[in-house]
């Protein structure tokens, strides 16, 4: 039998699996790069929301069943955000740093992404057993 945490980890990777299937079957629409980019970014935000919701839910409902997964979900959010960044740099911009730099200067929405990703790097901590 798989442990609960293994099942949770597999579940967290399911969006990647579906994405892989869509790439393999060429089912990402007319602008697959943008779709890929948005999809991994969306999953990062979903996991972030989930992670941030666990503590308030716990405080309100006294239900502690999610506490063990908070760290996993947080890391997932970071992992999907990293993929989002990699897709931007490699898949979309092919590491053309000049274009990337201009894009960064001229696109205010990217500033939020840079800020969010920078903050998430600082928020990574060593594992701490939850009490």
């Amino acid at each position: 039998m798989l442990s609960k945490s293994t099942i949770a980890l597999i579940a967290c990777c399911l969006p990647l699996l579906f994405l892989g299937v869509d790439i393999a079957t060429d089912d990402l629409g007319g602008n697959p790069i943008q779709t890929l980019h948005i999809r991994v970014g969306d999953w990062s935000l979903r996991f972030l929301c989930l992670t941030l919701a666990i503590t308030p839910i716990q405080a309100i409902s006294k239900w502690r069943g999610m506490a063990n997964y908070r760290q996993l979900f947080g890391l997932c959010s970071f992992a999907y955000a990293s993929l989002h960044l990699l897709v931007y740099l490699l898949v979309d911009n092919s590491l053309n740093w000049r274009l990337i730099w201009i894009d960064l200067l001229e696109s205010p929405y990217i500033w939020f992404g840079v800020l969010g990703f920078s903050l998430s790097i600082f928020s990574i901590k060593k594992p701490k057993s939850s009490t």
């Binding site: 490699l90 911009n93 205010p108 929405y109």
Partner: peptide, 24 residues
Amino acid sequence: VAHPRWSQHSERVLGSSFFTARRE
């Protein structure tokens, strides 16, 4: 001339594959 919310410096050529740079 950038759009107020995004750059107009490059464009994604539809039909191009992954890892293809954007067109200037």
